[in-house]
Amino acid sequence: MKITVEIPSALRRFTDGVQTIECSSETLPDLLGEIEQRFPAISKHLRDDSGQVRRFVNIYVNEEDIRFLGGNNYKFHEGDRVLVVPSIAGGAPARPCLSGRRAAGGPADACG
């Protein structure tokens, strides 16, 4: 399975200037590991000291915020395009409790 990851310009200095990379991971945690294996210098910029994806990094899959797709539990599909966007907003895509509420006013998620 192939998915494409688009690297924002702020992080391209750690990917030898490469804008898009092809990966084969099934989930977001695996994908982050795969990216870091290929580009080790990116790690400390993507994750904080405790290994969590930094609070202000947003991950999108085919234009949808991954938190609405199940976050860490989302299984990538063939051809998915993953977009990493720094700091347009809050959010912690790779924290254990991820799946945000879909319907406003609905019951709180049973996470944590």
Binding site: F68, G91, A92, G100, R101, R102, A104, A108
Partner: peptide, 17 residues
């Protein structure tokens, strides 16, 4: 929601208002 549920980090929502 984050304030009332005492969450450190809010959870994103799909707006309907």
């Amino acid at each position: 929601d984050a304030v009332k549920r005492k969450l450190e980090q809010f959870e994103p929502q799909k707006p309907a208002t």
